[in-house]
């Protein structure tokens, strides 16, 4: 018992203070080790502002004349890759998402299989998927579309499965009690509840895919990335700047479009 007026209070116990110190110390060690591994060459680091200025000078003035002949078609191809890829992802994600939702498919093995498919789709980077499908289909838009589709299945499927699992069980119970077959229960019980989430996810993924499909051309999977790759290799910096500007413009337009449509459906 402490006498009145002699209370002491500390936010952390001695043990917790020790633990916090160990964690901070660990961070400091990790930071210094990684700095040594990166091997920053000071001369190159100090030189970088000059290099950036040089690059900007080469990029200026922009070669706008290159847009109609060289960029426009590739940019449209990029949009097509993104849209078709998203569509492919939606078609694949619905069955996999349903299989992954444990309140619809009550077979743990199938839930687990669906999760495996979704995780493997997500754990492989878009560029790696692109390299794979370029090897399968050869360079071009087809490889890009399938790549975008496969990469997006994991994202759309996971979020779709989660939306299904969060659906209110009340209406489902009511339709079951009415003797509805499970396809009808899905169409009239689950789907109306998850439809806004589903379209929201689809739009969000399309937005991401517009950006990703601009990059995958670097490894030959079609679209504006291939044009960018060529311009970079030939040191046509004035063309590179126009390409970057058009990608930027398209991404902004996609973003505005998606935000607007989302507002309407939710």
């Amino acid at each position: 018992m402490t006498a009145p007026g002699t209370y002491t209070w500390q936010r952390f116990s001695a043990r917790e203070r020790m633990a916090r110190f160990v964690v901070f110390f660990g961070f400091a060690v990790a930071l210094s080790v990684s700095l040594r591994t990166v091997e920053v060459i000071p001369e190159f680091l100090w030189d970088s502002p000059t290099q950036i200025m040089d690059l900007l000078k080469r990029m200026w003035p922009l070669d706008y004349a290159y847009y109609p002949g060289g960029i426009h078609q590739a940019l449209m191809e990029t949009l097509h890759i993104a849209s078709l890829g998203t569509l492919l992802a939606l078609v694949l994600a619905i069955p996999v998402g349903v299989m992954g939702a444990n309140n619809i498919v009550r077979v743990p093995l199938l839930n687990w299989l669906a999760k495996l498919i979704l995780v493997s789709s997500r754990s492989v980077n878009t560029l790696v998927w692109a390299l794979l499908f370029v090897a399968v289909f050869g360079p071009g838009a087809l490889a890009g579309t399938v790549c975008i589709g496969f990469r997006s299945v994991g994202f759309v499927g996971k979020l779709f499965a989660e939306a299904l699992e969060e659906a209110d069980p009340g209406p489902i119970e009511a339709l079951t009690a009415a003797g509805a077959p499970w396809t009808s229960i899905f169409l009239k019980g689950f789907w109306p509840q998850v439809a806004p989430a589903f379209w929201g996810i689809a739009l969000f993924r399309w937005d991401i895919n517009v950006r990703e499909s601009a990059v995958i051309g670097l490894v030959g999977a079609g679209g504006i990335g291939m044009v960018l790759d060529t311009a970079l290799n030939l040191f046509h910096w004035d063309r590179v700047s126009v390409i970057l500007l058009s990608i930027f413009a398209v991404v902004i337009i996609a973003e505005l479009l998606v935000t607007n449509i989302r507002k309407r459906i939710i």
Partner: peptide
């Protein structure tokens, strides 16, 4: 066997008519 629930258990985003027709899904 018809069933009526405490929390109504309607499909909130469907119209009244569609909810009533849900009784025919069997």
């Amino acid at each position: 066997i018809g069933m009526v629930f405490q929390e109504f258990n309607l499909v909130e985003r469907l119209s009244v008519m569609e909810n009533v027709l849900c009784g025919r899904l069997g």
